[in-house]
Write a protein that binds this DNA or RNA. Sequence first.
RNA 1: UCCUGAGUAGCUCAAUGGCAGAGCAUUCGGCUGUUAACCGAAGGGUUGUAGGUUCGAGUCCUACCUCAGGAG
Length: 373
Amino acid sequence: MIFELRCKAAGGGRRGMLKLPHGTVQTPVFMPVGTAASVKAVEQSVLERMGTDGAGAEIILANTYHLYLRPGHELIARLGGVHRFMGWQRPMLTDSGGFQVFSLSSLRKVTPDGVEFRSHLDGSKHFFSPEHSMDVQIALGADVMMVFDECVEHPATYERTRDSMALTHAWARRSRDHFEANKHRVPWFAERDGHAQSLFGIVQGGMYADLRKESAERLVELDLPGYAIGGLAVGEPREVTREMIARTLEWLPKDKPRYVMGVGYPDEIEEYAKLGVDMMDCVLPTRAGRHGLVFARAEDGSIVRMNIKRKEYAEDSGPIDAACGCMTCARYSRAYLRHLFVAGEPLALTLNSIHNLHFYLATMERVRAELAA
RNA sequence: UCCUGAGUAGCUCAAUGGCAGAGCAUUCGGCUGUUAACCGAAGGGUUGUAGGUUCGAGUCCUACCUCAGGAG
């Protein structure tokens, strides 16, 4: 993996390129989330063609925990890795399953060694350790892997946050050690000019700046190729999210990619990119789209939320956003999209998701253009 | 014409003679490293009509209306 910075803007924002085994990603980048090896409701070739410049989604996420449970990482490895399995030839990042420790909290028990999960699918018991997460991610074979971490709930006391963070650090070291010892097990990476999978660290520390600082420093000691900021947008006010990101960026290496996990609304990803965040991912464009919320830009450039279910769109012959260049806006009216949604037609989920993803990708294209200027 | 059964929210249906409810639909809201085509809220009623019994009737009685099935 090679990260090249082209230019840095006054506010901290950076324009760069991330060269990964499956291709180059222009940063700052937004990464659509494809948890179960599918960006829900959107087909892969459509993902590739999105965006104002036609570049499409340059990198997407998949999830370790979900693919481990179904269909199983060993099955995917036998079929040649997650890229071949899902027909996606561009870069991919796998999340470690750490977030599921948080989001499936009622189904798990955390110990220093790892996490005992109960499958949300069939109740069966499973154990996830840093080593196991690495094994699963190596088998999946994404371009970028994440260390196994614990995402602390909000609100959390200082002591709880500090203890959780310490666990995350221990797990990060174990993740790295196991990854370094086993990373050559992926045969299909050998063919790619020496490019191998990369492992990113994850800064935790809740909403406590001093813990964030300590977390960043401890992770930097591991000398990983990239660092993520995790544990944000879990219910805290937006100003706090922004503050934690801005502060944490100060303590991370300037020459390595910085990734904020799980954010955000369109105005947030724009804001964070301008602060110097290089990578972001979020389920919002796809989930909100499937739930009838689409984003649009008003004439003054501000971002508006549009609930396509609303009656006021029933006879609205215009597109979601006349200035949008996506497939959905090029062809379909608000009235039709509302009809599809209200009628429960699956196409509604697809068209809304396509629009929202395009909106996010186009937003990042604008930011990149601004940062390069 | 007679017999039987059924009429309760827009729809499908609950409710010992004791505060008239649910699901769906409608309208609106929420969604941030996906347990999510999901979750939540609101509006919506002269219980077919008219009488009667009762402290009290969606519920019991009488007549009528409508619908379904059956008989002739």
